[in-house]
Design a protein around this nucleic acid. Sequence first.
RNA 1: GCCGCGUUCGUCUAGUCCGGUCCAGGACGCCAGGUUUUCAUCCUGGAAAUCAUGGGUUCGAAUCCCAUACGCGGUACCA
Length: 533
Amino acid sequence: MKTKTRVRFAPSPTGYLHIGGLRTALYDYLFAQKNGGDFVLKIEDTDRKRFVEGAVENLISSLDFLGLERNEGVFQQASIKNDNIQAIESKSYPGVLEVGEFGPYIQSEKLEVYKKYAEQLVADGHAYYCFCEPERLEEMRSEQTALKRPPIYDQYCLNNITPAEINAKLKENCSYTIRLKIPKDETIEFEDAVRGKVKFETNLVDDQVLLKSDGFPTYHLANVIDDHDMQITHVIRGEEWLSSVPKHILLYRFFGWAPPTFAHLPLLLNADKSKLSKRQGDVAVEDYIKKGYLKEAIINFVAFLGWNPGNGETQEIFTLSELVDRFDFAHVHKGGAVFDIKKLDWINAQWIKKIPISDLYQRSLEFLQTKDFYVNAPEEKKSEIYLKKILGIERGRLLRLSAVGEDSHFLFKKEIHYDGELLRWKECEDAETRKSLELSKNVLEKMDDNFFEFDPDSQMENDGLKRIMETFMRVAEDNFTDDAGKVDRGKLLWPLRVALTGEQRSSSPFEVAQILGKVESISRIEMAIKKIN
RNA sequence: GCCGCGUUCGUCUAGUCCGGUCCAGGACGCCAGGUUUUCAUCCUGGAAAUCAUGGGUUCGAAUCCCAUACGCGGUACCA
């Protein structure tokens, strides 16, 4: 019988969800979904020194926001879709829930388990107690480095302390650690899902501490035990873990367990190829969300950092479920990938154009509420339908949600202010400009009111806009064609656009007029005519 | 230092397993031109990689082998 695919994302609560962590979680999700498997979230909080308050909750929220659903492990009430699911509240993190039969999913809650296994290893002769002081270890290491030898524990406590002495020390409550006893002269070889065969000589592997003197396990011990307890079949993690795999393989062997498949992902890099770091830009997923990147775009972009669908595929924009269909380890890259924000911007712009207008509206509101032009706008210019109309013309030029409305601020104002000189098209005389504006005004006055009504949610072509445009184009041809038969549409359209927007650059006058409506458009033109005198 | 992993346009990458169709394809960015005035969008075109370097195998190598260089990761009672 084929065992069910089970993967896990195992972040440490030392801050927020890092973009590299997201990439790992994404690949976990994609791989699990693709194989009809389970995706488990557990928390590795064995390092109390680096623990950050609120980080667990934040990690969960970020994954939820991005839509990377898990079916087991650590949750928050809001992320549990099914009311029938049995959840236990965590003791160490109030409000955090644990769901599933293989818990606890928080390492600090299963300390006795790790200790029991560590002691079992000692009993079986695969690990030993170590009473060395940190100072001695440090001294030993610097001596080794000075002699240009690999810094490795010298096994002092393995060779120089009798069982009776160990018992005595334990009775005295001496501070101790438990170290893994690495066998000599062995080659550990394994098959990595992305890198292929990798081997290590055990003689160069340190007798790793498994249980720290504070009673907490190290990553190596806790990780192996958890993955076994939780029946994890594929361990997907960053490349920084590759060198510790021999320790993990040995642990699996000593416990008599079959190791999972390992897949070590390439690193994410800064522009200068160093490991992606905060110094050179944002690394927290929530920073990107705050800047107005859509979750779809973040996922789309991150998925392509180290993976591609292969086979000459030229599609670049993928939904989460399309990614699930295509994902495989064969196309995961081995080399690190530079995080290029320009490409993210482009993908974001594509997604802003792609999502339904009602969706764009919902997501834009929180950004709009931070803008003065929105806050100070009259109520009728804050209506859902009006905002959707604005978004309809803005989405084509918007890179990030955080800039929403900025290019259309004149649509939020009752009155616009600008220098009348801006109305002049090229070398035109004032009289010509005035004539042009009078003409536009006339055209608008005679225009069918229906042209100005449209449903921003509709997928259908905006017929009114088409008609408004056609009308003005015809008028331009009729009035501004020179003797050579060349039309200078700018003579009509530039003053019109400036009159409506007060801006040097903006959307087309047709779109703006349609949104403003007939009455307001005309009054803005009248305003403009006054400016010329 | 030692161990491990990597290296195709500025960037993300296709192609590498199964050598010829690759004087290396796509995308972002950049440059130029075009469309309905401006900006943006969109469209068309362009510049951009001696496939890290050197050797070997072969009729033929980005693709196979070896060496070197460079980069990165690990080398903790951190994950």
